[in-house]
Each structure stands twice: as C-alpha cells, then as structure tokens.
Design a protein around this nucleic acid. Sequence first.
DNA 1: ATGGTTGCCTCGCAA
Length: 257
Amino acid sequence: MSKIATWNVNSVKVRMPHLTEWLGTFQPDILMLQEIKCTSSEFPAMELKALGYHVNCVGQKTYNGVALLSKLPATDLVEALPGDDGDSQARYLEATVGDLRVASIYLPNGNPVDTDKFTYKLAWLDRLGRHARSLLASERKVVLAGDFNVCPTDIDVYDPVAFSNDALCRAESRSRFRALINQGYTDAFRALFPRSHAYSFWDYQGGAWQRDLGLRIDHLLLSPQAADRLVAVGIDRKPRDKEKASDHTPVWCELSD
DNA sequence: ATGGTTGCCTCGCAA
C-alpha cells in the first residue's frame, strides 16, 4: 500500500513545524508540495531527509516552487512542464518513485481574468493536457498531484454564483480540467465521494475556515493503471485548523500494490 | 462596504 499526498504549504519555511509534525503522524510514502516560496538551495532538505525522505525540489525566489518528498528515491526527474522553454516559473516536478510516475503541480492562479495571467493559465492547462496525454500513453501508474487552481464543478465551491467569473471557476478553466478527465484520468477524491461538498482551500480572509467557505482546488489525478489500485482518499482538515496554518490542507490517497 | 489576511529580500504584489 502506498500513501500519496499533496499539500500547498504557502511557504515551506513558515510551515516547517506543521510539515514535520504531519509527516511524522501521517507517514505518507510520497508527498508533493507546492508554493514552497524559496529557492532550491534554501529548501530545508536536511531536516526532511532526517525524517526519512528523499528530497527533490524546483524552487525560485519569493514565489511558486514545488517539491517531492519520497521514502523511496526519485529518478528520471523532469523539472519543468514540457512545451514552453520560455516559461521560467517553478511550477512542475515529475519523477519516478517505485512503480509510480508522479508530478507535483502548481498551476497558475489566473486572476484577474482580463489580464495576461489568465491567458498564461489557459496556455499552461493546454500544455499540461498535451503532456498528460503522453504520460497516459505510457500505460504506467501515473499520479498528477497538486494545486490545480481549478474548481472542477459548482459543488467544489461554496458560492458558485460569486465565483462564476473567477479564474478558478471560469468555463475556460473547467473545460480544460475536464479534458484531462476525458483523456482517462480519474479525480481520486470525486471517484470515491461523488457528491460531497469538501474543500481543500479556505481563504485567510473573513473567517472563511471557521465558516467552511472553501474551494476544492487541490487534486490527485490518476491514470487508469493507478485508478484501478485506488482504495482510499481523503482531505485531512486538521492542519488547516492550526495556528499559522497554510490556507490549503493536505489531500491524500492510498493505492494498493 | 472595492473591505479583509498572509507571506514575500515589501514600501506593492500575489494569492
């Protein structure tokens, strides 16, 4: 059995106490991190190695940044989403861990929608779609995990009307996410909880966490070979309830061997 | 009500 999780930590340096505690109690085999908000050389690799994890990351100064923690070593690393050599933002890390091909993804937010940020997001989603198709063709167990910054449907957002023009909910974003599903990827959480309103992100503002005004934007997408092994999935709300919490909380799944 | 909060080598920007 493998426990695989994704967590947008919103600054790994600030979140190290929560991260180390969560690793110790949950004991994931693979954890994909987003928004580490530091360069690769600043990443606290030594402390995480001391907890029994192999550490790989793609960082940049101030913004973005993704990482991969794994109990088994990671090989054959791809450190940027293929398809645009001019894209220098640290948003993608893919590797082989055991018999899994995994990717840590931090998709562009895309707001405001009347700017080039939205154009960049849609282009990034198109690139991800092309690359995801090539991964699917490998017929391996693939897990695309991360902060997709897409609410797939209206049940994934606490106020669909208020968010209807937000980049996370716009039809252009949802159609591209749905295209991934239509290729053959399974949204792990939705596969086992078809109707539940469960969120992975709550804004820091306005008491959103206390009022459960959230969005489900962190996802685990499984290739058919991985989806056949899916035995459990969940959203661990406990870290979000702590002092100095990230605005996201971990999403996890278990795959049988 | 154009508010509110967090993190970043900050005096605004991104989320």
